[in-house]
Every structure is written in structure tokens, then in C-alpha cells.
Amino acid sequence: MHLEIKHLYKQFSARGNTIVALKDINLHVETGELVCAVGASGSGKSTMLRIVAGLEQPTAGEVLVDGQPVIGPGADRGMVFQSYTLYPWMTVEENISFGLKLQGASLADRFEQACYYMGVVGLSQFAKALPRELSGGMKQRVAIARALASQPKILLMDEPFGALDVQTRETMQGFLIDLWQNTGTTILTITHDVEEAVFLSQRVYVMSARPGTIRQELVIDLPADRNEAVRRSSTFQDYRYAILDLLRQPVAVGA
């Protein structure tokens, strides 16, 4: 798997004004990596991820997955949204296996995959529950399992824990690290939470706002086994402050 974003531009026009949302974005993700793009609101990070997913079209530039240009959404790029997008009329099991159903998998295959991924996200005893009976964290775990069940080449996550409370959020970050280590999934996440970006990632792209550009790429050299001790280490804090400083840098006048 090799994801590459090359010279990506995105412009919107609103009430006669042209807004440059993304300016010359270059980024890559390799097999098995967990990469974060971190930025304030207005940095266009969400737009960037949506272009990678194929849900929006770039103004210029391209996105390549294994050398093939992205022209629209597909099951090779699974996506987890910030808002809860589970199908409310389906059980947890049906939600998770729905992607396979769309792709024409047999009932037996779907059942097998659903069982497997319910186990991966620890929700086996909720197989028959409806989404409304689940907590926010559980809903996002189902959403992740649903995306993974289609066996995408890369998992895209748009502020996946943004709607969760702090405690649940930290639990989910640990959960994602475990899941990533156990399944070897390639993941590209965007977030505005600097601590989350450092905790999760092997590499971080720091984005600046208006226009959205990539200010710097950082390799996060922390132990692979991320835990609370790592979160409290001074190296972790150094990365955190470095990114916060980058985010705080004023934008050049006229840019």
C-alpha cells in the first residue's frame, strides 16, 4: 500500500469570493503506518481527507493509491466519520457486515467476518443491539469495525474521537493503537488534538490554516508500545510543545 497526495489544491467560491482551502499539499502514507494530520479548524484537513476518500474532487493535483488515481469513493479506502454514521435500523452485526453485503458476499462470509470484527472491537455480546442502545465510544468502535470488515487498503479517520468525552477518548486512543498493532492496518487520521496526534502517530503532518498547507512533517520517535507512561514522558511533551509552537506561528501577511 502506498498513498500519495501530490500538489493538491482545493478552492471554493462563496458569494463571489474565492477561498483557497488547500494549497500545494504533499503527503504520503506507507503500508502499516499510522499517520496523523493535525491542524486547527480552517486548515482544510477535513477537506483533504474527503478528497482522499473520493468524496470531493480536488481543484488541482492528485491522490494516488498504489499508483492509481482516486476518482471517487471506494471500498479500498475505508472511512470513519466524526459523527455517528451507523445505520440505525441495523443491529451491530448487520452494520459491520453491511459493506460485505454491498460487495455481494455470501451470508456465511458476512456472518464470519462480522463475528471476527465484533471480537476485534470487543463488542461480541452486543451483536443484536441497535446503535441507539450503544454509548458513543461503542458506536465509534462499530464504525471502525464496519470500515475494517471491507478490508480496505487504508483506513481514513476524520476526527474519530472528536465527539467523545475525555476519558472515553483516551480509552479509544489506546484501543486504536492496539487495533493497529494487532491488525497491521494502514491508517491516516486527522485531528485538531495535538496530544492525540502525538500519542497515535509514527509521523505527524502539521497543517496551518487559511490557506491550508502542510507546515512541517515530524517523525514521532516514541516506543511502539504507547501507554500512559509514554504519554507522561518528557519526550512526548517535547513533541507536543513543538507541534503547538508550529500551530501558533503567525501566518505571513498577505498569505
Partner: peptide, 24 residues
Amino acid sequence: EMIEATYTLGGNRWQVLLQVILPY
């Protein structure tokens, strides 16, 4: 987002119409 999530699961427009919008 529910429609978009369906696209990223490999659904086409016809499937979105019949299997997502209609039940919804």
C-alpha cells in the same frame, strides 16, 4: 455522512437508494 459512509463501504448509488435511503 450516512450516504458517504455507504460509498466508502463500496456501495453504488442504486444500493444507497434501495438499502440506505429507503429503509431510513
